Each structure stands twice: as structure tokens, then as C-alpha cells.
Amino acid sequence: MRVLGLTGSIGMGKSTTARLFSEAGVPVYDADATVHKIYEGEAAPVIEAAFPGTTVDGKVDREKLSARVVHDAAAMTRLEQIVHPMLHAYRQAFLDRAERWGADVAVVDVPLLFETGGEKHVDAVVVVTTTPAIQRERILARDNMTDDKLTTILARQLPDAEKRSRADFVVDTSHGIDHVRGRIREILAEAAKMPRRRP
């Protein structure tokens, strides 16, 4: 089985691309969905102990937690030390299941793949991109999004040009869904023939 790491900066169309991989019959691990799950489960008491007042009714309040860590690099590192081992365990369980099901290719959708060194644990990297104008338009259309918040988020992410330069495959979502579907078919055909890179 080949494992593709799917990544891309905010507003590039990564979630749509992940859904289209899934529609093509590929098992997809969603790191963001797993974060939601552990924030409502095993991570909540540990995060509350580290950052008192950031949970409500036993679940992490993402707004409160974000306000606590977003401008504090040390706090962000502490949060990652709590969350990343839990996410790793879920991702490994997903890959074990996909292998048992006989999948040729599995996708791990990880927004901060390069930023967390995740590219070392996949066989190839797929980067989703679009034009800066489309990216900005998509992001600012989201609820509770402001220019300041956007600047902070983008500062934590590698620039799009660098991600593309490190990618094995690039998916440009500027040209509509049919274009993305075609690109996914090409990627799956190529990925199945690639040598395994992960340890």
C-alpha cells in the first residue's frame, strides 16, 4: 500500500480534494476531524490541566484554546506535545485498517504536514493550491474570520510556493471540480507504481 500525504495552506481546497479522493474509493484519514474527536474525548482533561479554563462541559472550547495559544509559541509547542502522540496513534490505526482492507493507496489529510515533519511518514506528498486571490476570497468568506486571524494562520504555515516545490504531486483547484477529479485519477495511477519511501 502507498500512503499519500495530502496538504495545502488554508483556503486552497484541500477538504474538497480529500472528499474527491474518498469518492474515488481511497481511504482518507482526516487529521482535523480526529482533532475534533480527541478534543471531545481523551485530550480534553490533559489540555484543561495544561491550559485551565479552556474546556466547557468536558470538551475543549476551540475558541478559548486558540485565544490562549495562537500568539504564544511556547504554549503552541506544549499543545502539540499533548495532541500529536494521540493523533499519531489514530493515524497508525487507520493505516493498519486500510492495509487489512487491501487498499492500494491511502491518503492522510494533514494541514501542517511539512510543518510537523509528517512528510517523512508518507510515500509521496500531494499539495493542493490555488491563486492567492481565490485563496483569500475563500478564507474571508468563513464565519469568524478576520484579516488579523488570517495573517496569524498564514504565518504558521509554510508559504504555498515552498510546499509546491517540495511536493510529488500538485493539485490546482482554480479550474473546478472536474479538473481536480481528473488530476486525482492521474495521481492514483502514478502512486500505485511508486517505490515505498516511508520507514
Rank of each mutant, 00 (worst) to 15 (best):
E162W: 06
E40Q: 15
L158G: 04
A75E: 08
G11H: 00
E99F: 12
R156P: 10
Y29T: 08
M86G: 07
G102C: 04
D72F: 10
A192P: 07
Q92T: 14
D172V: 11
G53W: 04
L158I: 11
V70P: 05
E190K: 12
T7R: 08
T130V: 05
E23V: 09
L95Y: 06
W101F: 11
D61Q: 01
D172S: 10
G117W: 00
E115W: 03
P132E: 00
T146N: 05
E23I: 09
L95V: 06
R19G: 14
H36M: 11
D178V: 05
V128A: 08
T77I: 12
Y29S: 09
L112S: 00
G118S: 00
F169S: 02
I187T: 06
G182V: 07
A133K: 14
D123M: 03
V56R: 15
R185K: 15
D143V: 14
A124H: 04
R198C: 03
L79M: 10
L95G: 09
N144K: 13
G102M: 03
K163S: 01
T17A: 12
R196F: 11
S15Y: 06
L150V: 07
L87S: 04
A93P: 10
D109F: 00
R196M: 14
A49R: 13
A167S: 05
I177V: 15
K64S: 03
V26K: 11
V35N: 09
I82H: 05
I47D: 12
L87D: 02
H175W: 13
Q157P: 06
S15D: 14
P111D: 06
G11V: 07
R78W: 02
V26H: 12
L113M: 00
E186K: 08
L150K: 04
E186W: 10
P195R: 07
T151G: 13
I82A: 05
M86R: 08
L79S: 00
R166I: 03
A75F: 06
D147M: 09
R197T: 07
A74G: 09
F94Q: 00
D96A: 15
K120P: 06
T55M: 04
T131F: 10
V170D: 02
A192W: 07
V3T: 13
Q135L: 01
G182I: 08
D96Y: 10
L112E: 01
S15R: 04
A191Y: 10
T77Q: 14
G102F: 06
L140S: 01
R2L: 15
A49F: 05
R100G: 09
R100I: 15
G102L: 02
R91P: 08
V125N: 03
H175K: 13
V107D: 07
A75N: 08
T7N: 04
T151C: 11
E42V: 13
E190Y: 03
P52W: 02
R142M: 00
A133L: 13
S9E: 07
E162S: 10
L112T: 01
F51H: 06
T7Y: 10
H36F: 13
G176E: 04
T34A: 15
L150Y: 12
E99N: 08
L79Y: 02
I187L: 04
A49Y: 01
V26I: 14
G102Q: 08
L150G: 05
V128N: 12
A18H: 05
V56M: 13
D143K: 15
T77K: 15
E190R: 14
A106H: 08
R138H: 09
T152M: 14
D104M: 11
V110E: 02
